[in-house]
Simulated scan of single mutants.
Amino acid sequence: MNGVELFLLGRTLMKIGEEAMPEPRDGRTGGPRAILVVLSDVVGHPDSAVGEIAARTGLPQSQVSTAVARLRESGSVVTAPDPEDRRRSLVRTAAGTSERVAEVRATRIDAALKAALGGDEHAAEVMAALDTLARHLLPAHGPSPAADGPD
């Protein structure tokens, strides 16, 4: 596998993940991609300002602000004033797990994976490969997604 193939595989996996996500309860439309990109940045860089998140992710600051607002509403992140510059807010992951976060984490990818594969003939093999990748590449996420549901 080369870098281009890995990139394309990653994009395919992202699309399967997006397809598996439950619809927002508030009826808002639009995919979760920007929200997940922002959340993954916040996990890796706690106590970041919106502008810093925008610079790292390449997303427009307005899109980052919208994603942070939705993540805050869902209970995924909290914000607090920057003690060095009270005009800015710092974003970090929430300490607890909200009902919405629990719902998203409990949602399985089986149906979306089978749809992407065109059936369930190779689903178990692919799920085992994903479990192995998660165990080796996402060590901070604890037990495998196959055991506890997707993170």
Rank of each mutant, 00 (worst) to 15 (best):
M1R: 10
V4L: 13
L6C: 12
L6P: 12
F7M: 14
F7T: 05
L8A: 08
G10T: 04
M14I: 08
K15V: 05
I16C: 13
G17N: 01
G17S: 05
E18N: 13
E18F: 06
A20F: 09
P22K: 07
P24A: 13
P24C: 14
P24T: 14
D26H: 13
P32W: 04
R33Q: 08
A34R: 04
L36R: 04
L39G: 06
V42R: 00
G44R: 10
D47F: 15
V50K: 00
E52A: 15
E52Y: 10
I53H: 00
A54G: 02
A55E: 00
A55N: 00
A55H: 03
R56W: 12
R56T: 08
T57A: 06
T57G: 03
G58Q: 11
P60L: 14
Q61G: 11
S62C: 12
V64A: 04
S65Q: 03
T66E: 10
A67F: 02
V68A: 00
V68R: 00
S74Y: 03
V77C: 12
V77D: 02
P81G: 09
P81C: 15
P81H: 12
P81M: 06
D82A: 12
P83Y: 06
E84V: 07
D85G: 09
R87T: 14
S89I: 05
S89W: 01
S89L: 03
L90S: 03
L90D: 15
T93R: 14
A94W: 00
A95C: 08
G96C: 13
G96D: 12
S98A: 14
V101C: 08
V101D: 11
A102C: 14
R105F: 02
R105E: 02
R105H: 06
A106K: 09
T107H: 07
R108A: 10
R108T: 06
I109G: 04
D110S: 01
D110Y: 01
A111P: 12
K114I: 07
L117F: 00
L117P: 02
L117N: 02
G118Y: 04
D120H: 07
E121H: 02
H122N: 07
H122C: 01
V126C: 14
L130A: 12
D131E: 09
T132W: 09
T132F: 10
L133Y: 02
A134D: 08
R135A: 12
L138H: 11
H141L: 01
H141P: 02
P145A: 11
A146C: 10
A146S: 06
A147S: 04
A147W: 07
D148H: 15
